[in-house]
């Protein structure tokens, strides 16, 4: 099997940590490498900025998306999702990204699907942003991870360092998040799988990381292309366990351009 990672990727984390932005990027990259790819929008906590807002774009790319029973985004805040979310979880031909609502309360929804999240087949990821007030220290990050673990009964496999400050992001922000993640790893044993970085800042981040004594490795795609998966000799599933700084380039999909208008 060419599959270098897990088949189901569960994306959890604090609200506003960037789970949806990461999930949409990740599923789009998966699609470039695999035929059958799905995203499950299980966010029933937040009414805005959900992956279902990109339904048209994702479906055009051939990505299956499941969210409510209507099959299109409606103006509702009912805590309900469609039964079809089980389809890609049960179909082993599908690689699936599960975009979960924020915090432990948002992750509660995972309980009813727990049987699909088995160790060899799925990975549980927590997105952290060291610039968010509720995940800006080691203690708060561990608390976030543990509260989601307690709520779901599923062990966290890795962190995604998604530290940014929107248009004001500097390489130092991303490195700060990486260092925070490394400290979490030292205490909790949960590694930083990779650090996201907008494509345009990747070069600057690599330089800044080297200056700090870290070894940056820029990932290409979502890691299922055998060439891209080499990643300095580490399998995609094991990223972050060796202390290298793996950089996952992203492009913004969720944020409308006018939000960055300066007065």
């Amino acid at each position: 099997m060419e599959n270098m990672g897990k088949r189901v990727h569960v994306i959890t984390g604090h609200f506003g940590s960037g789970k949806t932005e990461f999930s949409v990027n990740y599923v789009m990259d998966l699609k470039k490498e695999l035929e059958k790819v799905a995203i499950l929008d299980m966010d029933i906590a937040n009414p805005y900025f959900r992956s279902r807002e990109r339904q048209e774009k994702l479906e055009k790319l051939g990505i299956a998306i499941h969210f409510n029973t209507y099959g299109y985004d409606i103006s509702e805040d009912l805590p309900a999702i469609t039964a079809t979310v089980r389809a890609p979880l049960e179909n082993y031909d599908y690689e699936t990204v599960v975009d979960v609502g924020g915090n432990d309360s948002g992750a509660r929804i995972l309980l009813q699907f727990k049987k699909y999240f088995v160790k060899d087949d799925s990975e549980m990821l927590a997105v952290i942003n060291a610039n968010r007030p509720d995940t800006d220290t080691v203690e708060k990050c561990i608390n976030e991870v543990e509260s989601i673990e307690e709520e779901t009964g599923i062990k966290m496999d890795a962190l995604i360092n998604n530290t940014h400050m929107l248009r004001e992001t500097t390489p130092e922000d991303i490195i700060k998040g990486f260092e925070l993640g490394e400290k979490v790893k030292a205490i909790k044993g949960v590694p930083v799988k990779f650090s996201t970085c907008e494509t345009k800042y990747v070069e600057a981040l690599c330089e800044a990381a080297k200056k700090k004594g870290y070894e940056p490795v820029v990932l290409e795609g979502a890691g299922h292309d055998p060439e891209a998966a080499k990643n300095g000799g580490v399998e995609f599933a094991d990223l972050g366990k060796d202390g290298k700084m793996y950089i996952y380039p992203i492009t913004l999909q969720m944020r409308p351009s006018w939000l960055d208008v300066q007065f």
Binding site: G16, N131, M165, L166, E168
Partner: peptide
């Protein structure tokens, strides 16, 4: 210090 915040939290 600058923090990244959601409107309602802020």
């Amino acid at each position: 210090e600058k923090k990244l915040m959601k409107g309602n939290e802020a």
